[in-house]
Design a protein around this nucleic acid. Structure first.
Length: 751
DNA sequence: GACTCCGATCTTTTT
DNA sequence: GATCGGAGTC
């Protein structure tokens, strides 16, 4: 139990008081994860609790994995039997086991947000409603909000408050859309993200025997990031722990940043009311950051009115002042940040992985990436458009999904005529309408297609059905990897992509291969119990941006949104784009509560930094494809000025609308790439206007060079064998490609 | 049914 | 800047 000695007083309390309801309010950097991991280790080691009886819920798979690894270090491989995962993955697992009780097939599909919005779009169209009034996003958010507050479509239609509300918003049909949407999902054997929680609640409410079973199983329930739970999640955990009352929630109201998704800060405030014998522990000592950073963060969060009383302090050194960088344009901001990283690295012997650049919106990454590439600083982007959102990946996934669940409407729409097989939109519509009118399953309609479609189209459908049956057979008789490969081939996707010889087509082909590799990896992973294709698909459906950074150990600067950064820490942090309307976002400024959420977001960003914090803003920025002038964010003024110094490196010229369209030409090079994977961006490099090959007589290995097409690279070795002198040059912009190039096109950049 | 072209629309964060 | 859908054509 040596690890107990390393804890401070409140941390120790949090670890050893394992029984009864407990709430741990953990300030930023106060060792929250340590307490949680030690608490679980303590339960297993000291109390002799079987890991099988412990349930720990997190928000990201990454957090779950990290915690499991840390516990494993203390207690050994026993930790593998813990029930630990995200809310969505744990309850998806339970729902699969109990699906029949709700009338769902156990191989139900999980709809992602795209699937949901697509379905809403079709429904709005079918109802002949105006899609400008019933925008998929708006409708989806409304339905999602209802589900997160456990309001079923029946309740929604019944309750006059919602009706009046919708009517005053000129959207009286929302209840009807909600109803049809729910019915269609049910018919398709599909649940969306919110359903995973909503249906768990239904399951526990209507089937007390099931609830009882899980109440008996989970002797101890723990919830991480409690401030980000919504009502639906809160009720599940409350029910599960109702018998033994061993519930422990850990959170920080100051870091609640998901109210937009239904997270309810009231959960924290109400927790005391729900449990009269609640033990509250406050972790207030920050071990992560310098005094400057802690105090600056405090000066920000003090502006919020809705918060619990808490005094976050630190014993660490004062540290340096926060440096404020001022740029004229977003590109310039990138350059300032990149060169600042370069300098800091040199001066303080830091590694790339000691740095993070945090921004409010994903689109801000572009200017940063460009600048970092130009300075040859390696970086990785966390989140953004993920691999699994790419079209070619979704296409193959739709085949896999449909081969498992033949009623999955959204997957069917994706694949029935891709690759082209002569089944057009009107045929597809007829199929769906037939299924709804005759109250048949989609698969039944497809199997009796000749009663619904004329000959030519019907024949195409018959071939398609045969294809799917073959795939189903493959899945049942082969392992997941072989089956997926056969489907990729048999569907014609591989052939279709292989025929496309453009750079983008090639990369799409490679991506499909990459997905197959992922299946192979999954099959070969000894830690996975269920190796079926269905299990793989479920894992993929619930994966998040932060989870799939394979090259974690590589020396790279991390770029991500502030939302993704929650729970992480870095030596040096750059918060960029501190401009009014961007951060705080103009979409959040309609109410005071929203501004407070933005402020908490800013607080989260600041408290990621251990040693040194930089902030920057630009006076002009590309937005909506146009260059706009910007003003510094109000948040800068809210920090006590004694913590800030303005960098001298800011550019002196007055901001003007930047006509340099470097960004434009850079982007046009990749216009046809519908999928932008940020890490390895395969695009032609736009040289500086004044690019000219330089005298390369003195070229040697180790020198940096510039090439008009490939950008900056490092000379690896010289090749004097041929008639022309050539050099092997490594371009990390091109995914670490090494190319043999003639001297004639190279410009020596530096050595 | 397939294809092409044009214009409207939307750009906050994510399980 | 990118995507989606509609209109028009073959």
């Amino acid at each position: 139990m040596d690890y107990l000695k390393s804890l401070n007083e409140p941390q120790y309390e949090g670890v050893v008081n394992t029984d009864g309801p407990t709430m741990i309010i953990a300030g930023a950097g106060s060792g929250k994860t340590r307490v949680l991991t030690f608490r679980i280790a303590y339960l297993i080691e000291k109390k002799g609790v079987d890991p099988f009886n412990i349930l720990a819920l997190t928000f990201t798979n990454k957090a779950a994995k990290e915690m499991r690894d840390r516990i494993e270090k203390v207690v050994g491989t026993e930790a593998r039997n813990l029930w630990m995962g995200t809310f969505h993955s744990v309850f998806a697992r339970i729902l699969r086991a109990e699906a029949d009780k709700l009338g769902y097939p156990s191989n139900f599909t999980i709809y992602d947000a795209d699937d949901s919005k697509q379905l809403i779009k079709t429904i709005v169209k079918e109802l002949n409603l105006d899609d400008k009034v019933y925008k998929p996003n708006v409708v989806f958010n409304r339905i999602s909000g209802a589900k997160n507050r456990l309001i079923s479509w029946k309740e929604y239609l019944r309750n006059p408050v919602y009706k009046a509300d919708d009517e005053s918003n000129m959207k009286p049909e929302l209840g009807r859309i909600y109803k049809i949407y729910s019915e269609r999902c049910f018919k398709a054997g599909a649940m969306d993200f919110d359903d995973l929680l909503f249906n768990t609640n239904v399951l526990f409410k209507d089937h007390l025997d099931v609830l009882n079973k899980y109440q008996q199983r989970f002797h101890y329930v723990m919830v991480d990031e409690f401030q980000d739970t919504n009502i639906s999640q809160y009720l599940i955990t409350k029910k599960l722990s109702a018998v033994r009352q061993n519930i422990c929630v850990v959170g920080d109201d100051a870091q609640s940043i998901y109210a937009f998704r239904g997270a309810d800060i009231q959960n924290i405030l109400n927790f005391e009311k729900d449990y009269s014998d609640l033990r509250v522990i406050k972790l207030e000592q920050n071990y992560r950051s310098t005094k400057t950073i802690v105090n600056a963060a405090n000066s920000i969060i003090d502006k919020n009115r809705a918060q619990l009383k808490k005094n976050v302090w630190t014993d660490n050194e004062d540290g340096t002042l926060i440096e404020l960088l001022k740029a004229t344009s977003d590109n310039e901001e990138g350059k300032l940040v990149a060169s600042s990283i370069f300098e800091e690295k040199m001066q303080n012997q830091l590694k790339n992985s000691d740095f993070a650049i945090l921004y409010r919106t994903n689109s801000q990454s572009r200017a940063m990436e460009e600048a970092l590439r130009r300075m040859n600083i390696k970086y990785k982007i966390v989140g953004g458009l993920s691999f699994y959102q790419r079209k070619e990946i979704k296409d193959l996934m739709a085949y896999l999904r449909f081969a498992i669940n033949h009623n999955d409407e959204q997957s069917l729409r994706r694949i029935i005529n891709y690759p082209k097989r002569g089944i057009g939109d009107s045929s597809v519509d007829k199929i769906i309408v037939a299924a709804n009118d005759h109250n048949m399953g989609l698969w039944d309609v497809l199997n009796n297609i000749s009663s619904f479609l004329p000959g030519r189209a019907a024949n195409a459908v018959i071939d398609f059905v045969a294809l799917i049956k073959r795939f189903k057979y493959d899945i049942e008789s082969k392992d997941a990897y072989e089956a997926a490969s056969l489907i990729a081939k048999g569907s014609g996707i591989l052939k279709e992509l292989y025929a496309d010889k453009t750079v983008e087509g090639l990369s799409r082909y490679e991506n499909v291969q990459e997905l197959l590799n992922a299946v192979k990896e999954y099959v070969d992973d000894p830690e996975k119990e269920d190796k079926s294709l269905g299990a793989f698909l479920q894992e993929i459906a619930l994966i998040t941006g932060v989870d799939n950074d394979k090259d974690d150990d590589e020396e790279k600067v991390t770029l991500m949104t502030i939302h993704m950064a929650k729970g992480l820490e870095f030596k040096n942090v750059y918060i960029v784009g501190l401009e009014e309307d961007l951060f705080p976002s103009q979409m959040m400024l309609s109410s005071r509560a929203d501004l407070e959420e933005e402020r908490r977001l800013f607080y989260v960003a600041i408290t990621r930094a251990e040693n040194k914090l930089f902030m920057s803003y630009a006076l002009s920025r590309y937005r909506f494809g146009r260059l706009k002038n910007c003003e510094p964010s109000r948040f800068i003024d809210e920090i006590d000025p004694m913590f800030i110094k303005v960098s001298k490196k800011y550019t002196k010229k007055e901001p003007t609308v930047d006509t340099n369209n470097y960004t434009k030409s850079f982007v046009s090079g990749m216009r046809k790439t519908t999928t932008s994977q940020p890490v390895v961006r395969k695009t032609s490099y736009k040289p500086s206007a004044d690019f000219e090959p330089s005298d390369t007589s003195g070229l040697q290995a180790g020198m940096k060079v510039e090439h008009p097409k490939f950008g900056y690279g490092m000379v690896m070795e010289m090749d004097e064998s041929g008639a022309n002198r050539k050099a092997k040059v490594n371009f990390n912009d091109f995914g670490e490609k090494t190319l043999l190039l003639s001297f004639a096109k190279l410009k020596i950049h530096s050595n």
